[in-house]
Design a binder for these strands. Structure first.
Length: 786
DNA sequence: ATTACTGCCC
């Protein structure tokens, strides 16, 4: 028409411009715009609005605004065009301002204006403003408009309550596919997967065909509920619909199968996808990682790297998580180097994952390095580094870092509390552990099962089984770890009968035990000398609980039999084991040989341990103890020589005591403490009282080649005695004294403490390497059976 | 997409 020289007029221009808008041909539209200007129709209301709509729908923000300002008589259509342009260009705040101007200038908004504004409120997450728009909709009687209702469903689902969204949806007379998609996606977003599935079924019954958005939501709902079979059905209907190769849905499928623990299906979908993008690769790697298939997750990384898709921060943090889980130490620095090279090293997730992976692989220094160089040190970074120090046995460092974190005003979460409690548990830091209990109560972390379990463990390891029991009963949903921790705690404190009682309670509650629970049960029998009970549990664990005895269970039983003097039965059980005896089994036999002064068994066990654990000094010391106990001093000398030749150092005996917010360390003959004079004076004072009470120092247990007098002094200055003496002078009369030792408590100290607790009228609680000793009123809770 | 919980022998 134009080429023929026929001129357009105010009636033809709007149609032509609309055609340009629909075909998204902005280039042609601009040419038409030129003609409009030349022919002088630009002030015509319809032409001007058509031009505005063209630019607005093309996202031409500046041009739209200019045209809008130039229109002398703005209609609701003009305003709507600009409003939607603002919303589309992510200027929702300005859109709301514009809407207010519109109302002020006397223009009555229509359903287009209002649905547009509702979308703006959704993006702004402004539910108050959204509710106001809803009010407008009702006031102006547009509430039956389908577009507006759909926008409301979406808004309430995203920034209001799901109940409101469902309510609006149910009032829609004839919901279309958009309505269904909005409400189903809303349910998924609010993790109400059950409702999502229900609505999805209802939609199908009504004969409404789902589209890819519906299916995508349905996959997420299946994933959320673990409904693999339903997911599989959807998958087959997808294939029938011939949209199975869509990449967006492909990722949804992989994710769904992964979350339903159907990795074979996830892998198949992945394999069959014609084009695998970065997100697809990440989905399948995440699937493997979250299903504990860490080796698969890690091995996909180099394959992915070979493809053109590259990797991103998600890939790196996910792979690092698997590296951490496997403690695949040599991958840490490789992926670290790769992160640096690809510029992701400063990404928060990557940095935090690196800290965690280095920590879990035992590279504390590297973890610290990343932590210190990380641009944004957040709560997760602190949790990772604190956990790393705690697991490396550097609990005090871990707690120092917590102080630093508080100084930076970062608030703790349940993850951090759990980790800190573990640090306190390892340190036997009762007072500091109690302080971590405060944020747990303050922020309501007791509903978090991890925090609850850690609390039980901390109190049990810090010597207060009563506090542990209280924490245990306050866990709302006790899981297998809660029960195991409590049973193990009772076991460590020598409360064998109570531990077994709790185990029965657990079975009544319908919680099936795992192999760790059974270790704790056997351990409880062991510490309480309940041989017959242990044998009963051990024999029936396969039949009753479906748990095949492992090395750990055998080690427990062999230790228990050995301790009870049934050395032959212990050896017999070892011979019956379906696997080669490991160090814990031989260690148990060596311990039994020591208690019962059995030279032959001791030598045999020690020989095995020398081969199995050549780096450990404990074996030499123990065998030397056995020799010494029967007066074989040449054997003692031989062990000493052997240790010297193999350059092994005896792990120094150390004891710890917590005072206020500090943990004090002692070694034998320690004089580094600022109150050393008082400590030694206290020991001298006690020494006299002990003599009077009938205590005789067990000089024979000291293996040093020195005079008897010196032996007596060494014995009297053992680390646990120093720690107890410090506890006596630094705490008020009557207070309990809690001491932790890194090795077994010494027999002489054990005897001495039985006297001391009576002399000073105090409870002395000693946590040694494998159990607690509560000294009270002249006796020990272990009943001297340890 | 990253962080947290239970056990045996020495």
């Amino acid at each position: 028409m134009h080429l023929l020289g026929v001129k357009c007029n105010e009636f033809t221009f709007p149609s032509v411009l609309k055609a340009c808008t629909v075909t998204k041909d902005l280039w042609l539209g601009r040419q038409v715009h030129g003609t409009v200007v030349v022919t002088g129709f630009e002030n015509d209301e319809f032409v001007a609005n058509s031009l505005l709509v063209l630019y607005a729908k093309s996202g031409e923000f500046v041009d739209s605004r200019r045209l809008f300002d130039a229109i002398p008589e703005r209609s609701v259509v003009s305003w709507n065009a600009l409003l939607s342009c603002y919303v589309q260009s992510d200027s929702c705040g300005e859109a709301i301002g514009l809407f207010k101007d519109m109302v002020l200038s006397g223009i009555r908004p229509n359903e287009f204006s209002l649905s547009c504004m509702i979308n703006a409120c959704t993006v702004l997450e402004d539910s108050n403003q959204g509710r106001k728009m809803h009010g407008y909709l009702i006031k102006l009687a547009y509430d039956l408009d389908l577009f507006s209702a759909n926008a409301l469903v979406d808004m309430y689902a995203k920034v209001g309550t799901l109940e409101d969204a469902i309510c609006i949806f149910e009032e829609i007379a004839k919901p279309d596919i958009v309505s269904w998609n909005a409400v189903i996606a809303g349910c998924v977003l609010r993790e109400n997967h059950h409702w999502a599935i229900k609505l999805f079924g209802e939609m199908n019954r009504l004969g409404i065909y789902p589209n890819m958005y519906t299916i995508s939501s349905a996959f997420k709902a299946c994933a959320g509920m673990g409904l693999g079979e339903l997911g599989r059905q959807l998958h087959s209907s997808l294939i029938k619909m011939d949209i199975g190769s869509d990449s967006f849905l492909g990722v949804g499928l992989i994710d769904m199968y992964s979350k339903c623990e159907l990795m074979t299906d996830a892998q198949l979908v992945f394999k069959l996808m014609p084009e695998k993008d970065l997100i697809t690769w990440n989905a399948v790697i995440t699937g493997h990682s979250q299903n504990g298939e860490d080796i698969d997750a890690i091995s996909l990384f180099p394959l992915m790297h070979k493809e053109v898709v590259g990797v991103n921060q998600t890939t790196l943090s996910t792979v690092l998580k698997s590296v951490a889980a496997l403690q695949a130490d040599h991958f840490c620095s490789q992926i670290h180097a790769f992160s640096v090279k690809s510029g992701f090293e400063s990404d928060n997730y990557v940095a935090n994952s690196l800290i965690d992976a280095y920590g879990k692989c035992g590279y504390i220094e590297a973890a610290t390095q990343v932590f210190k160089e990380s641009p944004v040190v957040d709560l997760v970074a602190f949790t990772s580094i604190i956990t790393a120090y705690s697991q490396d046995g550097q609990g005090e460092e871990a707690l120092k870092l917590y102080l630093e974190m508080q100084y930076k005003d970062i608030k703790p979460d349940s993850f951090l509390c759990s980790s800190l409690l573990n640090a306190c548990a390892n340190l036997s830091a009762y007072e500091q552990g109690k302080q971590i209990h405060v944020p747990i109560l303050k922020f309501g972390f007791m509903s978090d099962i991890f925090a609850g379990n850690s609390l039980v463990n901390m109190y049990a390891k810090c010597g207060s089984i009563d506090d542990a029991d209280r924490a245990f009963s306050e866990i709302p949903q006790r899981g297998i770890v809660s029960w195991s921790a409590m049973i193990g705690g009772l076991a460590q404190h020598g409360h064998g009968k109570e531990a077994l009682h709790l185990f029965n309670q657990m079975l009544i509650d319908g919680v099936p035990p795992n192999h760790i629970t059974l270790v704790s049960v056997l351990c409880a029998c062991n510490h309480a000398g309940l041989v017959a009970e242990a044998q009963r549990y051990f024999k029936s664990m396969k039949k009753l609980f479906g748990i095949e005895p492992m090395q750990e269970h055998y080690a427990c039983m062999i230790d228990l039999l050995g301790r009870a003097g049934k050395l032959n039965e212990a050896i017999e059980l070892m011979n019956k084991m379906p696997f080669q005896a490991n160090a814990s089994v031989w260690g148990a036999l060596l311990g039994a040989a020591r208690i019962h002064k059995n030279i032959d068994l001791g030598q045999q066990a020690a020989e095995m341990l020398f081969a199995l654990e050549p780096g450990k000094s404990g074996t030499h010391v123990l065998l030397a103890n056995i020799y010494a106990s029967v007066g074989m001093w040449d054997g003692v000398a031989k062990m000493r020589r052997l240790m010297k030749d193999s350059k092994l150092k005896k792990e120094p005996a150390m004891s710890w005591i917590e005072m206020k917010d500090k943990v004090y360390t002692f070694i034998v003959g320690d004089r580094s403490h600022s109150r050393s004079k008082e400590i030694y004076a206290k020991l001298d004072e006690l020494s006299e009282l002990l003599d009077k009470a009938g205590y005789v120092p067990m000089l024979e247990i000291d293996l040093h080649d020195v005079e008897l007098n010196e032996k007596k002094q060494l014995l009297n200055h053992h680390s646990e005695k120093l720690a107890v003496a410090f506890g006596l002078i630094a705490t008020p009369p009557g207070a309990s004294i809690r001491v932790k030792k890194n090795l077994r408590i010494c027999l002489d100290c054990h005897t001495a403490f039985k006297y001391i607790c009576k002399i000073v009228s105090r409870e002395i609680i000693v946590r040694d390497i494998n159990r607690f000793h509560h000294f009270r009123d002249g006796s020990c809770s272990c009943g001297d059976y340890w």
